[in-house]
Computed example of a mutant assay.
Amino acid sequence: MSRITEVFLKKSNNVLNVYCTAGYPELNSTLTVMQALQNHGADLIELGMPYSDPLADGPIIQESSSIALQNGMTIQVLFEQLKDCRNTINVPIILMGYMNPILQYGFEAFCQKAVEVGVDGLILPDLPEYEFETMYGAMIKKYGLDFIFLITPETSETRIKKLDALSSGFLYAVSSSATTGNDKNFAEVEKYLQNLQQMHLKNPIMVGFGIKDHATFTAACKYSNGAIIGSAYIKALSSSVDIETGTKNFLQNIIK
């Protein structure tokens, strides 16, 4: 059983997954940020691998990726930073990124190294379903990594069920067909989440995009197992002098 699955067995709702960009705000901030997230209530850590053309990300995460790249963050550097992370980090770690730099690194080598350093799952928004089924899924499974697909309000029921069958860990329900960081009217999102709940899918549902405070976190969790926060946390980090204090204050306002 994966660490991700264990989280949902222990805590079936209000699960909090927080996204942070590796190498932000400083190159060597990665583990400090991860430790602070674990210390103050994050159930899952989604670690973004910075990329120059992050198609699913809004301006805040794009800027953090740009800064991280300028700082010198690469996949190789990230793996070096994570090699001893399991000495102190107990929560599941999910790597979120894009195929181009992973293919340059070597897909199987990437999966193997990810497992070696303690990674539990992958979110790769630009890996198509067909290529997952025919090329990469078997390799991901070989190394015991969970793989999380994204769905949107426009995804058909047939496709949702297919992506649910292919996913493990959880299913990432994007609150709308937009980039990260945009405000959402969660009254409009509610029906979408209710429909997902009524489908009795295999995987837990985590809601992402537009969750930024206690009110939106609570609304997102009403008809799901939990929520994913990214842009709002990156923004909080950018205005914090101290990572530990900034993370504590931010998460206390989410899960109060």
Rank of each mutant, 00 (worst) to 15 (best):
I140M: 05
G208C: 06
A109Y: 02
E188F: 15
F186S: 10
I148K: 02
E129I: 15
N195A: 13
G144M: 08
V174D: 01
A173T: 04
V117S: 10
S168V: 01
T152K: 04
I148D: 03
S177W: 03
Q198D: 15
S176M: 13
T155E: 10
K191P: 00
K162A: 14
K142S: 05
G181C: 12
E108D: 01
Q198I: 10
E133W: 08
Y143L: 02
G181N: 13
Y98C: 08
K202C: 00
M135Y: 14
A114N: 10
S176G: 10
E157H: 08
A114T: 10
K142Y: 02
T134D: 07
K142I: 00
L196M: 13
G208V: 10
K191M: 11
L171R: 03
T180L: 14
F107S: 12
S167C: 07
Q194T: 12
S167E: 02
N100Y: 05
I123G: 09
A187D: 15
I151E: 01
N185T: 15
F149D: 00
A178R: 14
P128T: 14
D126S: 13
E116W: 14
A109E: 15
E131A: 05
L196E: 07
A114H: 12
K202H: 08
G106Q: 08
I140D: 00
I148T: 07
V117L: 09
A178P: 09
Y98G: 09
K161F: 00
I148V: 07
T180N: 13
S175E: 05
N100C: 13
G121W: 04
T179K: 14
M99S: 11
F107N: 07
E116A: 15
C111S: 10
I102Q: 05
P125C: 14
P125H: 11
F186T: 11
L124T: 02
P153F: 12
D120C: 06
Y192L: 09
Y130G: 14
L196T: 04
S167P: 03
R159Q: 11
G169L: 07
G121A: 06
Y192W: 12
